[in-house]
Every structure is written in C-alpha cells, then in structure tokens.
C-alpha cells in the first residue's frame, strides 16, 4: 500500500527528468536575478534553452568545453551569483572533475552541476555516454550535496532545493521519459529520504528512475505475501541515516537499487552506514561493467533494472 501522505500518482504521464530541471530554471530565473545558467553546446538536450530564450543576458554558452564550463561558473559564483551548469553526465562531471573539485568545491561557491544524460537509459548512444560513475565522484567531494531525483517533478523540486541550500550541489537526471508519479504535494526535503511504501520483510532503497521500478516490484512482491518497504533516497549526500537505519533494522534485510555502478554509488553509501550497524544489505545496480547500445527499456530489462529484475533480485535474496 502506498503511503497516502506521499501523494503519488502511479499512472502519471511520462516526462523526461531533464524537463523538470528546465522548468525549475525558468522559475528560478524569474524569482532570482542572480541566477545564471551555462551550458556546453547542449542547450536543447539539457533543457537550458528555455532559460536562454527568456534570460539571454544571464545565459553563457561556452562551446564544447566542460572544464571551462565549470571554471567560468566558479568565477561567476565568486561574484555572489548562483551559477548553474548543465551538460551530459559523461563530461560534466566526467570530464571536469578537477575543476569541480577545486574551482567549485574547495572555493565553496554556489554552483549547481546538472548532469542531463546519465545511466544506461541514455540508451542507443552506448557505453561512452552512459555515465555510471558520477554519484561516486560527486559524493566523495567535501561541501557537495548530491541529489538523484526520481521523476520530472522531483527533478524540478531538487533544482529549486539545490538553489536554496548553501554551497555547491549536484543533480543527476536522465534523458528518457518516465512516468511522473510524485506530485506537487509530495514532500522534498534535502537530506530526508521519502518512505513511499511501508513494509516489514525487505527495505528497498532506491534512487532516480529506479524508484518507480522498485514501487512496481513491491507490488509484485505483495502478491506473494512479501511486504517490501520502498524508500526514495533522493539525497545521496548528506545521507538520511535515521530513516535508512530504522528501515534496515525493522526489515532485517535491505536492498539498494540504482542505475549506477554498485561500487561508489547509493549502494556503497548505504553499505558504509549499515556496516557499522551490522545490518544485511544486497546491492543491485551495474556490476563493474560498461553497458551497451539499445533502447532504454531493453537495457533496463537486460541489466535487471526494471521492476521484474528488481523483483527477481529481491526474491533470490529473501
């Protein structure tokens, strides 16, 4: 049963998470004259073109130059602005880690880093473009907050939240359209995981597009009498220790699900926490491999990151 307070719409229309990000930029541009947006030759793909059309004076196109993208944003932010940079995850933060580390995080300036194409659901472009190591990189950085929103509406909220908190933030979204199952009323508090479904047999901790799949898997498990809790860990850093620990203890068995390498991502973050508390965790995600070209649903099936795959994973572990 879904937690009614979470106000979910499981039949919601599909939308790309980057659309939620792009919409939030328009809201921010309207309400805060100190918001600047920068991109590296991917304005339409990142949905920053909406902001560019409306606020051309606060939009900077740097060309195919992600290192300079991060550095220029740091300079703009050093003047008291909020600078939002957006490009493909493979290059931002894949290409410009050093610039994010020193020009942004060590300076502790207000730059929001948005990765628009992450995970296997990038699809046909293949492994070089399917960023699967970004959470690991970003959550290791001091001063950084890391958001992995679950759908377009949450991507919008995460973007607004990234603007309102102190210091730099990272927002991970994908390219593909997915059902929008959270609503305007679903709470989004940075650092506070959302329990979307209560349960007592297994706690499924998921982030990003895997949250919806985990909810579907929980419905399948329910039919077999397995009560799975589903927790949306939309903030990877700082991690919501309290909620995660309480569900891990309550259920006795935990599973993490992410569209990312299991080493270094959400699963690792939770494992670090649970190891200290003697709780059992199985991590589901990409296991030390590059993926391949294909349509997003095909890849989710092949890498067992669709509802069926999560269902099977839990069944084996329980």
């Amino acid at each position: 049963m879904l937690n009614p307070e979470m106000s979910l719409d499981m039949d919601g229309k599909p939308a790309a998470l980057r659309d939620g990000f792009g919409k939030a930029l328009l809201e921010l541009g309207e309400k805060d004259p100190n918001v600047w947006v920068l991109t590296a030759d991917v304005s339409e793909s990142t949905r920053t073109h909406w902001f560019a059309e409306k606020f051309p004076k606060r939009f900077v196109q740097v060309g195919v130059a992600e290192q300079n993208l991060a550095g220029t944003a740091a300079g703009i932010a050093a003047c008291g602005k909020t600078a939002i940079i957006s490009a493909f995850g493979a290059f931002n933060p894949g290409r410009n880690f050093d610039q994010i580390r020193v020009s942004i995080c060590y300076n502790d300036v207000k730059v929001i880093i948005h990765a628009s194409h992450t995970g296997i659901t990038v699809g046909p472009d293949g492994a070089s473009h399917q960023m699967l190591e970004d959470i690991a990189m970003m959550r290791a950085l001091p001063n950084m907050t890391v958001f992995v929103p679950a759908d377009a509406e949450e991507a919008r909220k995460a973007t607004l939240a990234a603007h309102s908190i102190k210091g730099p933030a990272y927002i991970r979204t994908g390219r593909e359209k997915f059902p929008v199952f959270t609503t305007e009323k679903t709470p989004f508090i940075p650092g506070k995981a959302n329990v979307l479904r209560d349960g007592s047999d297994v706690a499924i901790f998921a982030c990003g597009v895997e949250v919806y799949q985990a909810l579907k898997a929980a419905e399948m498990l329910e039919k077999e009498g397995i009560k799975a809790a589903v927790i949306n860990v939309h903030t990877i850093k700082p991690l919501d220790r309290e909620t995660i620990l309480s569900y891990a203890k309550k259920c006795g068995l935990s599973v993490s699900v992410e569209e990312h390498q299991v080493n270094g991502g959400l699963g690792s973050a939770i494992a670090e926490l649970l190891a200290e508390e003697n709780c059992k965790l199985f991590r589901h995600g990409i296991h030390n491999t590059f993926a391949e070209s294909g349509e997003a649903p095909e890849l989710m099936k092949k890498y067992k990151l669709d509802a069926q795959g999560i269902y099977e994973f839990v069944k084996v572990k329980i």
């Binding site: 900077v60 550095g71 944003a73 300079g75 932010a77 050093d98």
Partner: peptide, 12 residues
C-alpha cells in the same frame, strides 16, 4: 583553472 574563473568574473 584560474583563467576560467577570471573570465567568469569579467562576464559578470
């Protein structure tokens, strides 16, 4: 890295 930041400041 410095030149990028200098450019960002000058743009503002």
């Amino acid at each position: 890295q410095g030149i990028s930041q200098a450019v960002g400041m000058a743009i503002v």
